[in-house]
């Protein structure tokens, strides 16, 4: 018994070591630096609340925070809707396993190119004289090009949904495949309609998958900066953009403070989400 626990510790040691060096230590470093002071070209150790004070007393911060949540929430809504539908179709409407796998792989094809390229390819499409506008004009739907298609919240969210829907499809599909088909037959035999089966049988059983997908999407959207920068033409901002700007201007302590606040927020959010579902059961 005692021997076993020693082996257990030893087995856990490499991962603990790797995580503490590459994950825990840098986070502690960021937290420490967030109290430091900065000159234009250097940072110096100190214990100052300046960075937090500037951050928490500026109404811009709160607006940016709100924006970050707004992007996360709307993107979550769309990716969930699309992701659930796609997964449902793959899991329950496609009968043969071969086709399921084939279609699933088809979903992943866009991921063979880089994130940035998939995102930037929207720009010529949505521009003032882009494909979308010229098509709509030639069809006679609109007379003037739509300005809000590009460099707006619309284009940011569109890009997010495009980039991250797969992160919703995969975990939901995975959970759905594990649902015992006889449960659905039982529901039908008991006289449930299609909607009732969906709502009272499939959705509750898919919850862990939805939750994992939610964590992926929310964490990705809240930590993103490059999509917001390119798709809004630097006109909108989220927390990631604040951090990026600070780093570009060599204000590392201020960037660290923002990072700490973002980290705490995301952790709280995920902590809350995890209360709704036992994620270990899924893994």
């Amino acid at each position: 018994m005692k021997n076993n626990s020693v082996i257990g510790w030893l087995l856990a040691a490499p991962l603990t070591l790797v995580l503490s060096i590459f994950l825990v230590a840098p986070i502690i470093m960021i937290a420490v630096v967030s109290f430091w002071g900065a000159t234009e070209w250097s940072i110096y150790p100190a214990f100052l609340f300046d960075n937090y004070e500037f951050l928490l007393t500026s109404d811009v911060t709160y607006r940016v925070f709100f924006n970050t949540f707004k992007y996360a929430l709307i993107t979550w809504g769309f990716t969930l809707l699309i992701g659930f539908t796609v997964a449902y179709y793959l899991a329950f409407h496609i009968r043969s396993l071969t086709w399921q796998i084939a279609l699933f792989l088809l979903c992943t094809i866009p991921f063979l190119t880089s994130n940035i390229i998939r995102m930037i390819s929207w720009i010529p499409c949505l521009g003032r004289n882009g494909i979308a506008n010229s098509t709509l004009i030639s069809m006679g739907v609109i007379d003037e090009p739509l300005e809000w298609l590009l460099f707006s919240d619309f284009s940011v969210i569109l890009a997010f949904v495009h980039l991250y829907t797969l992160f919703m499809v995969v975990p939901i599909f995975n959970t759905m495949m594990r649902i015992d088909k006889s449960l659905i037959e039982a529901a039908t035999d008991a006289g449930a309609t299609g909607w009732q089966t969906l709502w009272h049988v499939i959705v509750p059983l898919t919850k862990p998958g939805i939750m994992i997908g939610t964590i992926f999407v929310v964490a990705l959207v809240m930590g993103d900066f490059i999509t917001v920068r390119f798709m809004s033409g630097s006109q909108s901002a989220n927390m990631g953009r604040l951090i990026q700007n600070d780093i570009a201007l060599l204000q590392y302590p201020s960037a660290s403070a923002t990072a700490v606040i973002l980290l705490v927020t995301v952790l709280l959010l995920i902590g809350t989400l995890l209360r709704f579902v036992d994620i270990r059961k899924e893994l």
């Binding site: 234009e40 500037f54 901002a237 604040l242 700007n245």
Partner: peptide, 19 residues
Amino acid sequence: AVMDENQYMVRKWNEFIAA
């Protein structure tokens, strides 16, 4: 230019971009 109040300007600039 880089001004004497550059750090303040930089923070305000960041707010302008985020506004």
